[in-house]
């Protein structure tokens, strides 16, 4: 089990990008992390992996896996740990594989790190079978540029599975892919999650994908989680006005409106986040208390929470 407690990611000598994010992921569960670009989703995931770029650092909070503290460990420092592992699939399959190494070499390399005693080649083939790559013998000999985007993303997933992860982090893994390929990859992730009893942190800006795939959802805005809920109650009755506004932006085929709904204004940049509720300048429900001071946590039924003074759908509040 992965437990993330109040982590803060900051630019060195600069503003905070992720401002106190907490969640947990159980085995076999998919947590969808939703937010606009720049909300800190990717930096949260890189912080979990110990892969933050040099300009950023994890300045507070803790990350524990099976009770073991992995907060400040780089991936190679976690290999020998007894606790469960984390692995990650990135957004850009086109650039995430080394262009000069064959697919086999790139997968076998990951296998050898985590299973130094097994024969890497059959295990690599097994991993490619797991991600349903056809004609594995041929694909193993290929170079990345000879594969399509969908195939490359499957290879990335195979590499991630090499460490038998307890939690798979997928950072917008389908954003760069065609719609049909997207569906295949999403189906694959759901299937692997069930089959391997693996937790998944699925990062996306696409609420439609979350509705299809996730068990639980965390909504991120300006570096903070503003709402946490199981997927079904969230879509039925969002508590946070930001979540509500995101849903209002989903295109509705039955509507006669020619113009699609948008949220007015734009998300604040790190370092320029307003005091009080960060969403207050764009929020139609904002009142005086929203503009300063701490924001209370509104609790709905079944563990739904939202950081808001004046939540939507008050009927579901516990």
């Amino acid at each position: 089990m992965l437990n993330v407690d109040n982590i803060v990611v900051s630019v060195r000598n600069g503003p905070d990008i992720v401002r106190g994010v907490s969640f947990r992921i159980e085995p076999g569960e998919i947590l969808g992390l939703v937010g606009e670009s720049g909300s800190g989703k990717s930096m949260t995931s890189l912080a979990l992996m110990g892969l933050l770029p040099p300009a950023l650092h994890l300045s507070a909070g803790s990350i524990t896996q099976d009770g073991a503290d992995v907060t400040h460990l780089a991936p190679h420092e976690r290999v020998r740990r007894k606790c469960g592992k984390m692995a990650m699939v990135f957004q850009e399959p086109m650039t995430s594989l080394n262009p000069v190494l064959r697919i086999a070499e790139q997968i076998e390399e990951a296998v050898r790190v985590h299973d130094p005693d097994t024969d890497a080649s059959p295990r690599a083939r097994e991993l490619l079978d797991m991600v349903r790559i056809p004609d594995t013998a041929h694909q193993m000999r290929s170079f990345p540029h000879e594969l399509s985007g969908g195939m490359r993303q499957r290879v990335m997933i195979a590499i991630a599975l090499a460490c038998r992860p307890q939690v798979l982090i997928a950072d917008e893994p389908t954003t760069a892919l065609d719609v049909t390929v997207q569906l295949q990859v999403l189906g694959l992730i759901r299937d692997l999650c069930n089959r391997l009893d693996m937790g998944v942190l699925f990062i996306t800006h696409d609420l439609g994908v979350v509705a299809q795939l996730a068990d639980r959802v965390a909504v991120m805005y300006a570096g903070s989680l503003v709402e946490n809920a199981d997927v079904e109650p969230l879509f039925r009755a969002p508590l946070h006005p930001y979540t509500g506004a995101l849903m209002a932006c989903l295109p509705n085929p039955e509507s006669d409106d020619a113009v699609m709904a948008t949220i007015s204004g734009s998300a604040p940049r790190p370092g320029a986040i307003p005091p009080g509720c960060p969403f207050s300048p764009r929020c139609s429900r904002a009142q005086q208390p929203c503009l300063s001071g701490p924001v209370p946590c509104a609790r709905g039924v079944a563990g739904q929470t939202a950081m808001c003074h004046f939540p939507l759908n008050e009927s579901v509040l516990a």
Binding site: H76, F90, S96, L97, P99, E109, A110, V113
Partner: peptide, 10 residues
């Protein structure tokens, strides 16, 4: 990106 992938492998 592929260097980050390599690091992520451990």
């Amino acid at each position: 990106d592929y260097v980050r992938t390599a690091r992520a492998k451990g």
